[in-house]
């Protein structure tokens, strides 16, 4: 079932200063249309400045599109806020509060009881492994620890739609593997068949986790499909070659060693 549907989304940022007339900048998103389905991990892939973060922020309602619309389960996005989670690349934690306090604060804002929040923290900890940082102030945590706390905070209300901006940023290999397994679990039937849309730079990560890939270049969707479909469609041997051809218009040939 289609969970997220973006139709012809467009956005350009304006350049303005105190003494100069406001001037329109180049389009950050140019009539972007895409779909992300339930029980599926969709990866948004693109070079720097492709418009990935702007697109995800639009889904979260933090940027206003100039044109186009966003539907979640066929309805306007604002009707699904309670079932929606957004994790920004900056984590956005309160540095003077502990990890647990950060999670509990958002849980309480979602109207969850203390007992329910405790249960959710235990469940999320069993998948993400952040028990050792629960009593630590967020400002004293490493980037990886902060990312895990921020992820737990975003998921405390058990949302159905997850929009994650660079969730593997700053995570070590063990944490990345844990996160990968957790996202797989969430997308599975046992985990509730959630719709997960994430952005990343790591091609390896995409190959390992994504059911569907959307390649975004200069604000336009260049390719949609599975890793294999995109690789084959671009007549490439590896997904990296296909991505380089789509993103930079170049062909990176394989280096055969030996």
């Amino acid at each position: 079932m289609i969970m997220i549907e973006a139709i012809d989304l467009s956005k350009r940022f304006e350049h303005s200063s105190l003494f100069r007339k406001t001037q329109p900048g180049r389009p950050v998103l140019d009539r972007v249309s895409l779909r992300a389905e339930d029980a599926c991990i969709t990866a948004l892939l693109g070079p720097n400045g492709a418009g990935k973060t702007t697109f995800l922020r639009m889904l979260a309602g933090l940027e206003k599109p100039e044109a186009g619309s966003i539907l979640i389960q066929g309805q306007p996005a604002h009707l699904h806020t309670a079932k929606f989670a957004y994790l920004s690349d900056g984590c956005g934690l309160y540095p003077r509060l502990t990890g647990e306090e950060n999670i509990r604060y958002f849980g309480a804002l979602y109207g969850l009881s203390d007992a329910h929040i405790t249960l959710r923290i235990q469940t999320l900890d069993s998948h993400l492994g952040f028990a050792h940082v629960l009593a630590k102030k967020a400002g004293a945590c490493s980037l990886g620890e902060r990312m895990r706390i921020a992820l737990a905070r975003a998921l405390v209300h058990d949302p159905h739609t997850l929009v994650l901006d660079e969730p593997t940023n700053g995570l070590d290999l063990a944490s990345v593997r844990k996160l990968r397994n957790f996202l797989r679990y969430l997308a599975s039937e046992a985990g509730g068949g959630k719709c997960i849309l994430l952005s990343t730079h790591h091609l390896h990560e995409v190959e390992m986790i994504a059911d569907q890939v959307i390649v975004l270049v200069q604000g336009q969707v260049k390719a949609t499909g599975s890793v294999r479909q995109i690789t084959v469609a671009n007549a490439a041997q590896h997904f990296e070659d296909a991505f380089a051809a789509l993103a930079f218009g170049e062909t990176i040939s394989c280096i055969n060693v030996g």
């Binding site: 979260a60 309602g61 933090l62 804002l109 979602y110």
Partner: peptide, 13 residues
């Protein structure tokens, strides 16, 4: 600046 205001905005608050 910390980005927490946006995180709050995404909730139902």
């Amino acid at each position: 600046e910390k980005g927490t205001l946006e995180a709050l905005a995404v909730t139902l608050t």
